[in-house]
Amino acid sequence: MSFLEICIALAFFIVGLSTGAVAWRLIRGPSTADRAIATDMLGLLAICFAALVAAATGARAYLDIAFGIALIGFLAAVSFGGLLERASASPPAQEPGE
């Protein structure tokens, strides 16, 4: 097992643990903003995984996947942000009985 392979295995381990941590934050919250931030971080982790798979298997296409996620991943965060802002500023929905 070469040095590079050991590094890649360790990196897989660390990034896997990180994914667990981010997932915990995503489920736990407590605020909607926390969940949006965790979702954004999941995108970054997806880039890491794609790059690691590319390095481990030598399949160059996975690097293109990482590139694609980096290119459009921020759109999700921006739209989450816009949604959060508008949802919190809108007046409360009327109760049916009123």
Binding site: D40, A77, G82, L83, L84, E85, S88
Partner: peptide, 25 residues
């Protein structure tokens, strides 16, 4: 990939931070 990360990540974090502030986090 790195260049695009550097360009887009500030946009995302700014939008998220602003939304977090406005929504009262």
């Amino acid at each position: 990939c790195v260049v695009f990360l550097l360009v887009t990540s500030p946009i995302a974090s700014h939008a998220l931070g602003r939304a977090a502030y406005v929504s009262g986090a």
